Simulated assay, not measured.
Amino acid sequence: MDADTARERILAAVRAIPRGRVAGYGEVARRAGLPGRARLVARILSSNDDPALPWHRVLRSDGRIAMPAGSAGWREQGRRLRAEGVEVSAGRVRMPAQAPDEGLDALLWGPGPGA
């Protein structure tokens, strides 16, 4: 997969995270079809210039904001998450539980029909 395709897939996965929900960098990478590429997700988000991209919904796998504590970006991400109703405490969000065979779709939208 070329770099532009990977970038577009990652950005599409970030845009698909519903308001008031969060996902880890690794989960975004898996959702984009790029398992194991969490650092690529972080790199792409760090160079984002689209103000409409909901970058603030992406966190470390343990729920922590990845920016240095107290930095302007750290404060902005916490502010945006709180504005969407996400509980943020000391720069950390409780991440949704994930069963080993569930992906981002199941986490974000719940069980499928007939589940």
Rank of each mutant, 00 (worst) to 15 (best):
M1N: 09
M1W: 07
D2G: 14
A3N: 15
T5R: 15
A6G: 09
A6I: 12
R7S: 11
E8N: 11
E8W: 04
R9M: 03
R9P: 00
L11T: 03
L11M: 00
L11P: 00
A12G: 12
A13P: 04
V14H: 11
R15Y: 08
A16C: 07
A16Q: 04
I17N: 09
R19D: 13
R19F: 14
R21Q: 14
V22G: 08
V22F: 06
A23K: 02
G24E: 08
G24T: 09
Y25G: 00
Y25A: 05
A29S: 07
A29C: 06
R31S: 15
R31M: 14
G33W: 01
L34N: 02
R37G: 09
A38G: 12
R39L: 13
R39M: 12
L40R: 13
L40E: 14
A42N: 01
R43S: 13
R43Q: 14
R43F: 11
L45A: 01
S46H: 01
S47F: 08
N48W: 02
N48E: 01
D49W: 01
D49N: 06
P51I: 10
A52P: 01
P54S: 13
P54L: 12
P54H: 14
P54G: 13
P54E: 13
P54V: 13
H56T: 05
H56Y: 12
R57N: 03
R57W: 04
V58M: 09
L59D: 04
L59A: 10
R60K: 15
S61W: 11
S61P: 09
S61D: 14
R64C: 07
R64I: 03
A66F: 03
A66C: 09
M67Y: 13
P68D: 14
A69K: 11
A69T: 10
G70V: 07
S71F: 03
W74T: 07
E76K: 08
Q77G: 01
R79G: 04
R80S: 05
L81D: 02
L81F: 03
L81Q: 00
R82D: 07
R82H: 06
R82G: 11
A83C: 03
A83W: 01
A83Q: 07
E84S: 06
G85F: 09
G85T: 09
V86I: 06
E87V: 14
V88A: 11
G91D: 05
G91W: 02
R92V: 06
R94Q: 08
M95W: 08
M95Q: 08
A97M: 07
Q98V: 10
Q98C: 07
A99Y: 06
A99Q: 12
A99S: 08
A99C: 02
A99I: 01
D101H: 05
G103Y: 01
L104F: 09
D105C: 05
A106L: 11
A106K: 06
A106F: 06
L107E: 02
L107C: 06
L108F: 13
L108T: 10
W109D: 11
G110Q: 04
P111Y: 08
P111R: 15
G112H: 07
P113N: 10
P113A: 12
P113T: 12
P113L: 13
G114P: 06
A115E: 14
A115K: 10
